[in-house]
């Protein structure tokens, strides 16, 4: 894949991101490109990949609003979509807002249902909907017990360093999502010993780039985190929160936001406020989806497939 085509594909993505069309993303030398998927999905699956993983986001268990009267049904459709991936993804990443209202039993419903993907290992980061009612106690006890810090984590898989960041536990009146000093210090230490050639994948709920501060679609101290990652040749940032696909490339860092499985949200500034967006019923599933990310060492190429539930 040439760089030139990559630029074209990026341009294509920027158009298609708003339409809810499935996309294939690829990385060469840390730069992402994309094309629409459909029958092309088969091509991604036959790529010489050593491993791939799935991302699911904003499942909002318990959502009953008009924007999706059957959010459990679309969640199950997302699970079926992931289960159908062949070969089976190495693990699953959930980028937060597992629940909608943090009601009793909602985390159980989510984690039990996600076993239906057939994937054994799942990594979670919280969204604000998972921690707002109790300051994160239930989430941390369930998903981060025994780990130092407040839910952040890192692990290595197949030569790639994965970092899960938490940017919803420091909400203050009038403020925005943030990582906080303790987590930033941890991140600096965490990546300090890595070779700059190590591919890094960062996942967090609220976007780590400035999408739309007026709606809180930003992490106010993300710049510091990104400074620690600047020396790496390939950094891929996976976020949720905004329930739509957006992309930004900044140096060697490529940012992606993911679709929800529960309901879409308006494009930035396209409504008086963020929140569940009601669309014609026949359009809904095209605006919901899941993501598959494939890494192939040696080729330094990462493929990201966003598939809608349509």
């Amino acid at each position: 894949m040439s760089d030139e085509r990559g630029v074209d594909r990026r341009g294509f993505l920027q158009c298609m991101a708003w339409t809810g069309t499935g996309l294939l993303w690829s990385v060469a030398g840390g730069v992402l490109s994309s094309r629409a998927i459909g029958v092309g999905t088969a091509e991604a699956q036959t790529a010489p990949a050593s491993f791939h993983f799935a991302q699911i986001s904003d499942t909002h268990i318990g959502f009953k609003g008009a924007a999706n009267p059957d959010a459990m049904g679309t969640f199950e459709a997302a699970i079926a979509r992931i289960k159908a991936l062949d070969p089976k993804p190495a693990f699953l990443i959930h980028t937060g807002d597992i629940t909608h209202g943090q009601k009793a039993g909602a985390f159980d419903v989510a984690s039990e249902a996600l076993k239906g993907t057939g994937i054994d290992r799942a990594f979670y980061v919280p969204g604000e909907h998972d921690v707002f009612a109790d300051g994160g106690t239930e989430y941390l006890n369930r998903f981060a017990a025994g780990r130092p810090g407040r839910g952040w984590q890192s692990f290595d898989y197949g030569g790639v360093h994965f970092v899960g960041l938490v940017n919803v536990l420091t909400y203050k009146a009038g403020g925005l999502g943030s990582l906080g000093a303790e987590q930033l210090e941890w991140l600096e230490r965490d990546v300090a010993g890595l070779a700059s050639s190590t591919p890094v994948v960062v996942f967090a709920h609220v976007p780590l780039w400035t999408v739309y501060p007026q709606w809180g679609w930003v992490t106010d101290d993300a710049t510091q985190a990104l400074a620690y990652l600047k020396r790496f040749g390939s950094v891929t940032v996976l976020n949720g929160h905004i329930h739509q696909i957006m992309q930004k490339v900044e140096g060697n860092v490529t940012f992606h936001t993911a679709r929800s499985t529960a309901f879409p949200q308006p494009a930035p500034g396209a409504a008086p406020a963020p929140g569940p967006l009601k669309v014609p019923v026949e359009e809904l599933r095209g605006m919901l989806g899941v993501r598959e990310v494939t890494y192939a060492p040696g080729k330094d190429r990462l493929a990201v497939v966003d598939a809608s539930l349509a």
């Binding site: 009601k103 909907h129 909400y171 009146a173 009038g174 925005l176 709606w215 809180g216």
Partner: peptide, 30 residues
């Protein structure tokens, strides 16, 4: 707690003072 669509929450203010509040889901709401 989380106040869902069409739900209400009430609080009785007994003591004089200034009570600032916000939404823990959307902290720009104050």
């Amino acid at each position: 707690p989380g106040i869902d669509t069409d739900e209400t929450y009430s609080y009785t203010f007994t003591k004089p003072g200034i009570y600032d509040y916000f939404c823990t889901l959307h902290p720009l709401m104050t």
